[in-house]
């Protein structure tokens, strides 16, 4: 198994997103590419990533392998790469991850026993969909966070608003149809869902500017799925379970 990225931004974004949920991550490499799927310890959020072989400068994988890494250790190595530096990873016979950063930095990192079990994806319909720039979404989360720990998303016909309510007050942000920043709002059914900013904020910050656009899909009292559109990466899906009244 050997994979070489062109540039380091995509790998940094992926590792940063994963680091918001788990301390140890198991990746699966197949001939098709590299995948990761995992939940945070309390099972409130799930990240599902698929990174196709075509996105790499060089990619070889003769047989399927799983490899586990401590995310903070891996992250430290990858941060040593400049934006344009390629990162090459392979696995040694001594069960070490070989990480070549740029032209001349060759790291070896101990792999960990992978305890990964196959996590399914939640089976849910998505009644509503909002596409907007990730920078706009990041600002909205900041606007809500000053009064609340939770974001409520509401769609009605083809309108949407984000809101938050806390002890000190509340906020409503109407999404006007701004062509530059709001790509699309659609709803098959009016939907309302409330989600924790404790999970949302870090992952949106982590993928940050690497994703131009994001798509939020949800239904009333169902998990939110955010798709980050990162040019070379097949899929970065972030699922977040709702808070519901009972």
């Amino acid at each position: 198994f050997e994979a070489k990225t062109s540039g380091s931004d995509d790998l940094k974004a992926i590792i940063s997103a994963i680091s918001t949920l788990v301390e140890e991550a198991t990746f699966v490499a197949t001939a098709e590419g590299i995948t990761f799927r995992g939940m945070d310890p309390s099972h409130v959020a799930l990240i599902d990533i698929s990174w196709p072989n075509s996105a790499f400068e060089k990619y070889e994988c003769d047989s399927d392998i799983k490899f586990g890494v401590r995310i903070d250790e891996f992250s430290k190595l990858i941060k040593r790469a400049d934006k344009k530096d390629s990162i090459e990873i392979s696995i040694s016979e001594q069960n070490m991850l070989l990480v070549t950063v740029g032209k001349n930095k060759k790291y070896k990192m101990r792999l960990i026993e992978s305890s990964a079990t196959d996590t399914p994806l939640p089976k849910i319909p998505y009644d509503s969909k909002i596409t907007l720039s990730s920078s706009r979404f990041d600002k909205i989360l900041g606007d809500v966070q000053v009064v609340s720990d939770y974001l409520t998303i509401h769609t009605s016909d083809s309108k949407a608003d984000f809101s938050g309510k806390g002890d000190s007050g509340e906020v409503v942000i109407d999404l006007e149809k701004d062509i530059d920043e709001i790509g699309e709002i659609s709803s098959k059914e009016d939907s309302i869902g409330t989600y924790s900013l404790e999970y949302l904020n870090p992952v949106v910050k982590a993928v940050g500017t690497t994703a131009g656009q994001i798509t939020c899909e949800f239904s009333s009292a169902k998990p939110l799925r955010i798709e980050f559109k990162v040019a070379n990466i097949g899929r970065i899906h972030f699922y977040l379970a709702p808070r519901v009244e009972s």
Binding site: H43, V44, P223, A241, R243, V244
Partner: peptide, 11 residues
């Protein structure tokens, strides 16, 4: 009462 659901509630 507001409750935080888990992803597993929707498998």
């Amino acid at each position: 009462l507001i409750r935080q659901k888990t992803i597993a509630d929707f498998f």
